[in-house]
Amino acid sequence: MKDHVRARLIKNYIFKGLVMLFAFISLLPLLLILYYITKNGISVINWDFLTQLPRPIGEAGGGVFNAIMGTIMLIVLSCVFSIPFGIAAGIYLAENREGKLSNIVRLCVVVLQGTPSIVIGIIAYAWIVAPLRTFSALSGGIALSIMMLPVIIKTTEETLKLIPYHLKEASLALGVPYYKTILKVVLPSGLNGILTGILLSVARITGETAPLLFTAFGNQFMNWNIFKPIDSLPYRIFYYAMSPYPEWHTFAWGASFILVVLTLAFNLIARGVSIKWKIQF
């Protein structure tokens, strides 16, 4: 009898141990990536690397200032395009849970989320680059905003669905018009969820390379004009890593390090926002 119990206890321990082991193993790739990138990348990070432009082939030194600024510009542009559309669509879906249009929109969101990013790049090329006859920051921003849309729509919808109906009633019963009820009562109550969604989608597109290859294209120089090609961190990494020069390889590690830090920062801020700004009903 006693042996029987012991055998079970041992099995329990083995089971718990295995689960923990697998949890740890799934953590390993991320830790290794972080370790490797930090080890190789941190040595090139210095003030010059962050503030100087790339030098021509054969000249030592230089930095990735244009790529950092380019990535920031692309993020801003894609936010400008995707946030209004995404939040509006999310409101529509949360307010109209059934109905033909809602179901079609929901299906499209799922399909859009699964669309390969390179395809979105081609679409942006056909829509914007080809008619304007130039690669541009604008086209890159639009490609990335299409990638952000599904995440923003989905999180906005899910967040707003969780807002208790009685809050809306309270506002409507005060004679507040429907649109103001949505904008001033429902949206602010769900702000933390929506912001979290936006930040996560930004984190997602920060590292996107494929849609930028034939839209933003890349640029050796600093460019602030959104109708001209622009550099970005992922593109710069690609460019440096493909080059035959050892110094540029280390630059690629440095740029990767910056990119990972940016992505991590967005994720952490998103977590902070969702915890700190949590609203109690």
Binding site: H166, L167, A170, V185, S189, I279, F281
Partner: peptide, 12 residues
């Protein structure tokens, strides 16, 4: 004016 079953002050 209306007062509901569940207290519903605006949380924000």
């Amino acid at each position: 004016g209306m007062v509901f079953q569940k207290p519903n002050p605006f949380p924000t």
